[in-house]
């Protein structure tokens, strides 16, 4: 589903002395099937943005469109429940939201809310379990006996069992160890591709943004600061430094290399191996190829 924000502003506690503008005049367009990374510091408006995507909040002004669903200040779509069945949100530390007696019941909870038949739910659970990297033996266990990483996978399975078209991920790898982080991101990326999802990833990691996203949006103080392809946006060191963000390490290296050697190797999201090979060509006396 296409996602469009048109001049969206959102004010918390509007018309009170505590009124606080979290998003201001935000416009962007995410075509269906994209993998978008949203980057910004704490307080930049990321979480408020996400809450618009499945109608947890409606814009104070402006308009949000998700597929055929429109959200404005005056009207919430009648089919809010339908919207929520199509936009799955994995919040930060989703394992904190587990509550059922068994893994199976916890995964079933989401689809049950959307009146999906029991046979269908059982079928989906079977499908979703291997996708998130869990074993079927765990289904009868209490989710609270599992490790943190497994608990998070259960929570994610619950969102996937709704079969959303849009998957929103709010820092999905926070608190995992490096291997866990990589496995989790690879899992989302595979699902994104296999199921033609539209994926919105909120992250602090420039490395993840450059590796997985085809489009990045950088937020600062509730407004859009930059937007575009990762290789265009995430190479602008000066602009990023201004909002205390940094370019990915590979970009940093290429830029320092250029300063030192006066040779420009453009960043095209190439692999580290390819970077090494390009560098090799410029280093005199660098070995067998000379």
């Amino acid at each position: 589903m296409d996602i469009t924000f048109k001049n969206v502003s959102y004010i918390y506690q509007r018309n009170t002395p505590f009124a606080h503008k979290a998003i201001e005049d935000l416009s962007f367009h995410i075509p269906s099937g994209s993998f978008v990374a949203i980057i910004g510091h704490t307080g930049s408006g990321k979480s408020t943005l996400i809450q618009h995507l499945n109608g947890l909040v409606s814009p104070s002004s402006g308009e949000v469109t998700i597929g055929d669903y429109r959200l404005t200040d005056e009207k919430k779509p009648k089919q809010m429940k339908e919207l929520r069945s199509r936009v799955g949100v994995v919040f930060q530390y989703p394992e904190h939201q587990l509550f059922e007696e068994t893994v199976e019941k916890d995964i079933a909870f989401g689809p049950q809310n959307f009146d999906i038949s029991e046979t269908e739910i059982n079928k989906r659970i079977k499908e979703v379990i291997p996708k998130v990297g869990l074993q079927e033996e765990l289904l009868k266990r209490s989710p609270f006996e599992l490790s943190g990483g497994q608990m998070r996978r259960v929570a994610i399975a619950g969102v996937l069992a709704i079969k959303p078209d849009v998957l929103v991920l709010d820092e999905p790898t926070a608190g995992l160890d490096p291997r866990g982080q990589k496995e989790m991101m690879d899992m989302f990326y595979t699902m994104h591709q296999e199921e033609g999802l539209t994926t919105v990833l909120v992250t602090h990691s420039m490395e993840d943004a450059v590796k997985y996203a085809d489009h990045v949006i950088i937020l600062n103080n509730g407004t859009k600061y930059m937007e575009g392809k990762p290789e265009d946006v995430l190479t602008q060191q000066e602009a990023l430094n201004k909002v205390q963000l940094d370019v990915p390490e590979a970009v940093q290296f290429l830029q320092s290399f250029e300063k030192r050697f006066g040779v420009q190797i453009p960043f095209t999201r190439q692999s580290t191996k390819e970077i090494a090979q390009s560098v090799q060509r410029y280093i005199k006396g660098a070995g067998p190829h000379e």
Binding site: D177, A276, V279, A286, H289
Partner: peptide, 21 residues
């Protein structure tokens, strides 16, 4: 053992493989 290696270490390895000593 499930840990990460810094970018510089990975790049150094690749540079060595590309023939830079």
């Amino acid at each position: 053992i499930g840990l990460d290696v810094p970018f510089v270490a990975i790049l150094t390895d690749e540079l060595k493989q590309a023939g830079i000593s």
